[in-house]
């Protein structure tokens, strides 16, 4: 009876207040640390932070840009969160998302170019989700049949996807009408999601938010969510209760892949339209970080996704307004991340 109890994220419902404290500390501590960095760069932190805030809320266009970035980040976040709830780790949201993006482009260019948007866009998005699911199925197979560590296989599969995209855009799907640049052809006009006036944002941000809310609801309130949390909380307890642990885990993982893939499809049909070597890079990782920082709470991940997306978007405008390189915002993101992980660790060791 002296067994030490470790509380796993899967079972406990994060208490909102604790998570909020974490998020606040995760904002203010890094702001302090980043100020030191800014001072070493001979920048006035106040100017920089004011520029950031101005960017966050400065213009309709900027808000739209944040929404555009946030859509795939939210979905990739769920791709990390859902498997985590059943005790699996999916670091492959990045690759699954890009798989969706690539597939949406291929399907858009080669199959749907003659179709009206109402038909073509759903086909593209469905194909993207299917691609994400299949890309997740490979590490899942390695896990279930070959007992390979899924954290490693999913992470590595991202790099395979990077190379696969490079191969595709340099070869098979290179736009023959282009100037021999390593880019695919663009999807037809009618396959592009219509943007809100004055922005590049579109209705898909609401779809992504809907997916997050549904995820939150399923885990917090439904019988299915209860069973899944049981599996994540104590696998043996779920086995002793007769739950099909393996089956549930497989489905959770595949659905996660599909959601990430969908995110990639949305990126393709709303802003990118064509595939280049680095298209949609880092969105999956941002989503992974956002749920990590949110401590496994889908609702909190909306705020963390917003924050990370805003920093990512505003990095560019920082460069314009203050002369800092845009990579400075990556440093700020890293500081936030390390702070959050530091806080989390400190608490567990108590």
């Amino acid at each position: 009876m002296m067994q030490k109890m470790t509380v796993k994220a899967g079972a406990d419902r994060p208490e909102i207040r604790k998570v909020l404290m974490r998020v606040l500390a995760g904002i203010f501590v890094p702001i302090g640390l980043f100020s030191i960095f800014l001072l070493t760069q001979r920048q006035n932190p106040l100017t920089v932070y004011r520029a950031l805030v101005m960017c966050f809320a400065g213009s309709k266009y900027n808000v739209g840009e944040i929404a555009v970035e946030m859509t795939p980040v939210l979905l990739a976040g769920m791709a990390a969160l859902i498997p985590a709830k059943v005790g699996l780790s999916n670091c492959g949201g990045e690759g699954q998302l890009i798989a969706g993006c690539l597939t949406a482009n291929i399907v858009g260019v080669y199959l749907c170019s003659g179709l009206p948007g109402v038909v073509g866009i759903p086909i593209m998005l469905a194909a993207a989700a299917a691609a994400g699911l299949l890309w997740a199925a490979i590490p899942l197979f390695c896990k279930m049949k070959l007992n390979m560590n899924e954290t490693l296989t999913t992470l590595l599969s991202n790099y395979i996807m990077y190379k696969l995209v490079a191969y595709m855009v340099f070869g098979p799907i290179k736009d023959t009408a282009g100037n021999n640049y390593p880019m695919s052809a663009r999807i037809a006009e009618q396959l592009r999601l219509p943007a809100f006036a004055g922005t590049r944002a579109n209705v898909m941000i609401f779809a992504a938010l809907f997916v997050v809310v549904i995820t939150a609801f399923v885990f917090a309130k439904t019988e299915l969510g209860f069973k899944l949390r049981t599996i994540g909380g104590n696998e043996r307890a779920a086995e002793f209760a007769g739950f099909s642990v393996k089956k549930a885990r497989c489905w959770a993982f595949l659905i996660a892949g599909a959601i990430a893939g969908l995110g990639g499809g949305i990126v393709m049909s709303s802003v990118e339209f064509q595939m280049r070597e680095a298209t949609a890079h880092d969105l999956g990782y941002l989503g992974f970080l956002a749920t990590g920082i949110a401590g496994g709470s889908p609702i909190v991940s909306i705020f963390t996704s917003f924050l990370l997306s805003a920093l990512s978007v505003c990095g560019t405008s920082l460069e314009i307004t203050t002369g800092l390189r845009s990579s400075a915002s990556t440093i700020l993101m890293s500081v936030i991340l390390l702070t959050i992980f530091g806080l989390g660790r400190g608490r567990r060791e108590k």
């Binding site: 067994q3 079972a11 209860f226 049981t230 909380g233 104590n234 307890a237 002793f240 209760a241």
Partner: peptide, 24 residues
Amino acid sequence: ILSEDPIRDNLVPGYTVLEHMAIS
């Protein structure tokens, strides 16, 4: 079954007694 080690085999961290009664 009553397992030899209910902490290992039955206990889900974070769950109330009621929730354990719902598991089985």
